[in-house]
């Protein structure tokens, strides 16, 4: 569970994790019925529309591009046109 919380990047206390754990196994229990069905000859469905090759031409779409201030408008921390986060690595 700890690994999972880390992998999911969720800031959860140990106590909260414990309460989530029971819900977790309850849900996994439901999935067991899938073993009833024979899927040995079945291909997976990742998309239902059956569409293929939906591609864009290599053109610049100015209409959709945002100005710098629009790009930054919802960020809590910015500096001179950049988004800001606490230092990620120590300078080597």
């Amino acid at each position: 569970m700890k690994d999972l919380i880390k992998l999911a990047n969720l800031p959860i206390s140990d106590e909260q994790a414990k309460s989530l754990e029971s819900a977790f196994s309850e849900t996994l229990e439901v999935f067991k019925n899938l073993t009833d069905l024979d899927i040995s000859q079945t291909e997976p469905t990742n998309q239902v529309t059956g569409q293929e090759n939906v591609l864009r031409e290599d053109k610049i779409d100015e209409d959709r591009m945002l100005t710098q201030s629009q790009a930054l408008q919802s960020a809590k921390h910015t500096h001179e046109g950049f988004f800001v986060v606490p230092r990620l690595i120590d300078e080597k």
Partner: peptide, 19 residues
């Protein structure tokens, strides 16, 4: 980072589903 609050704001249901 780019919008909204950080991941500590997710409610229980979202957390359960993410996990």
């Amino acid at each position: 980072i780019r919008f909204g609050n950080d991941r500590s704001y997710f409610g229980d249901e979202a957390r359960r589903r993410i996990l």
